[in-house]
Design a protein around this nucleic acid. Structure first.
Length: 320
DNA sequence: GTCCAGGCAC
DNA sequence: GTGCCTGGAC
């Protein structure tokens, strides 16, 4: 095992992604923020845009707790999965002096599940605990030849491999090996520090599964109501885009839309249709927004696309 | 156009 | 198991 650990850490020291900003800080808030942003989101988007901008606005967990939910959602705008931002804000308000440091206490906080609780313990506090994201899961399945493994079995194997003297670097190393070497397709086994003792090296494709796709088409209908260059937006209350501002939703209609565009999420391919309206139904709070100042509002990418279309001069109104 | 990557809450 | 989101690779 000593040899394996040395190979893993030796590889990490030479090839690991040491330039990631959240790996060069011991500020738990920064590390926690990075883990929330990185959930379901690619490193490059977080690193170049959202992480530095968010920290500029909310440099400490106390500053985040002081902010309104709307301000937080505005800085999250475009990143998707907006419940992450709402839970982050809720945690900041619960945290007081700072986040708890134990796995169990972290797990009890909103938006912190098994992965994130372990990541904060290992990456933030160098606690001896195994972290398993999808990349590490793939490495473990191949290394221990476990094509059909439960999360519990995977964790037991991760614990067997865990280097308790450098748990932070060990887990980061496995993560980098997963995303840089032990790729889902055509893994680079010849470059892998685990190749000497990897039990799945002869059939790496056995340990990855293809997701089923299959999508559904849907139509969405929104109203456009302008006044003095401003546009009416309402606050969403349903699960989708909760807390964000959107154009006022309409019932299905056969009228000819003034504009349409496509957008997709998860398995849905949406056609979004926009209609001019002169009254608003319901008693929702209305926000009269300047559609050219999109940075100031909590808007989804879908709503931003719609506003761009509406505020773009004529001649540029093709789909997408 | 289609597929893919990526954790949590219910 | 399903909903939540986006952008980039092909």
């Amino acid at each position: 095992m000593q040899t394996t650990w040395q190979a893993i850490l030796g590889w990490y020291d030479r090839h690991g992604r040491h330039d990631l900003p959240w790996r060069n800080t011991d500020d738990i808030y920064h590390i926690y923020l990075s883990e929330i942003m990185l959930q379901q989101t690619q490193v490059s988007r977080v690193r170049e845009h959202f992480y530095p901008l968010f920290l500029e606005h909310f440099p400490t967990i106390g500053a985040l707790a002081q902010a309104t939910e709307e301000e937080v959602l505005s800085r999250w705008s475009g990143l998707g999965y907006y419940n992450r931002a709402r839970n982050l804000h809720a945690c900041a308000r619960l945290a007081g002096d700072g986040l708890p440091t134990g796995y169990k206490e972290l797990l009890g906080l909103p938006g912190i599940g098994d992965y994130t609780a372990r990541a904060i313990c290992a990456f933030g506090h160098n606690q001896p605990i195994s972290v398993i994201d999808t990349n590490i899961a793939r490495v473990l399945k191949r290394y221990f030849a476990l094509p059909e493994s439960t999360p519990k079995a995977l964790l037991e194997h991760a614990d067997k491999l865990l280097n308790t003297s450098r748990p932070r670097d060990h887990n980061l190393a496995l993560m980098d090996i997963g995303s840089m070497v032990c790729l889902p397709k055509n893994p680079l086994c010849s470059l892998c520090p685990l190749s000497q003792s990897c039990m799945g090296i002869d059939a790496p494709e056995t340990y990855t599964e293809n997701k089923k796709s299959g999508y559904e088409s849907r139509e969405l209908y929104y109203g456009v109501m302008m006044s003095k260059g401003r546009i009416a937006l309402v606050r969403t209350t349903g699960s989708m885009y909760k807390g964000m501002l959107t154009l006022p939703p309409l019932e299905q209609t056969d009228r000819e839309p003034i504009a349409s565009f496509r957008h997709s999420y998860t398995k849905y391919h949406l056609t979004v249709n926009l209609y001019e309206i002169d009254t608003l139904s319901g008693d929702d709070e209305v926000i009269w927004a300047d559609g050219r100042e999109m940075d100031d509002y909590p808007l989804s990418t879908l709503t931003k696309k719609a506003l761009r279309l509406i505020y773009t001069p004529k001649g540029n109104h093709e789909l997408q």
